Simulated assay, not measured.
Amino acid sequence: MSTHHRIDYVELPARDLDNTKQFFRDVFGWGFTDFGPDYTAFEDAGLMGGFFRDSQASRTDRGAALVVLYSRDLDQTQAQVEAAGGRISKAIFSFPGGRRFQFFEPSGNELAVWSDQGMDESADQ
């Protein structure tokens, strides 16, 4: 497959790079490489990207794009997000093709997690 005109890298702001890195390490198993005190690149996330130090946050209510991750066990992932300090912005809900939830990570960025597993369960909360 050609890489020409494909999404190649995503960057998100982070007020607290250390907390953000720890959150994504703990919940999703991502790795990080720091490039100075104000930037860290993430690995093992399915798409390469990074976090840059900034007071802003990426949120859908402000018109930002939503980064959506995949999970084989949505309920477990939501519990891990909450245990690591994430705040749920939309609890698990069903949509055609699956279920998902949205959350704020420690720096305030909003992301989502979806799954096509367990669709026969009544997961609307």
Rank of each mutant, 00 (worst) to 15 (best):
E11D: 11
E11T: 13
P13E: 01
R15L: 07
R15V: 14
R15Y: 07
D16Y: 02
L17R: 00
N19C: 03
K21P: 00
K21F: 03
Q22F: 08
F24H: 05
F24N: 02
F24E: 01
F24L: 10
D26Q: 09
V27R: 00
G29F: 09
G31A: 13
G31Q: 10
G31F: 09
G31N: 08
F32H: 10
T33R: 11
D34M: 09
D34Y: 11
F35D: 02
F35P: 04
F35N: 02
F35S: 10
G36E: 02
G36H: 06
G36V: 11
G36M: 13
P37I: 09
P37F: 05
P37A: 05
P37L: 04
P37V: 08
D38L: 12
Y39N: 07
A41V: 08
F42C: 05
E43R: 15
D44P: 06
D44N: 14
D44W: 12
D44C: 11
A45S: 11
A45V: 12
G46K: 09
G46C: 10
M48Q: 09
M48A: 11
G49C: 03
G49I: 05
F52I: 09
F52K: 03
R53Y: 11
D54A: 15
D54L: 12
S55R: 14
Q56R: 15
Q56D: 14
A57S: 15
A57D: 07
S58I: 07
R59W: 09
T60F: 07
T60P: 05
D61F: 02
D61G: 03
D61V: 08
R62W: 06
R62C: 03
R62N: 04
R62Q: 12
G63F: 01
A64P: 00
A64G: 00
A64M: 04
A64Q: 00
A65D: 04
L66R: 09
L66Y: 08
L66S: 09
L66H: 07
V67Y: 02
V68I: 14
L69W: 13
L69P: 05
Y70K: 03
S71L: 15
D73Y: 14
D75P: 10
D75H: 10
D75Q: 15
Q76W: 06
Q76S: 14
T77P: 00
A79F: 00
Q80L: 08
V81T: 04
V81C: 01
V81Q: 00
E82N: 01
A83S: 06
A84V: 08
A84N: 04
G85A: 06
G85Y: 01
G86D: 01
G86V: 04
R87L: 09
I88T: 14
K90P: 05
K90S: 14
A91W: 05
F93R: 14
F93L: 15
F93G: 14
S94F: 12
F95Q: 11
G97A: 05
G97F: 06
G98F: 04
G98C: 10
R99V: 11
F101V: 03
F101S: 01
Q102Y: 04
F103R: 00
P106I: 06
S107N: 05
S107V: 12
N109C: 03
N109T: 08
E110H: 04
E110L: 08
L111E: 01
L111F: 10
A112I: 12
A112V: 11
S115F: 10
Q117H: 14
G118L: 13
G118Y: 13
M119A: 13
D120K: 12
D120F: 14
E121R: 15
A123L: 15
A123E: 03
D124R: 13
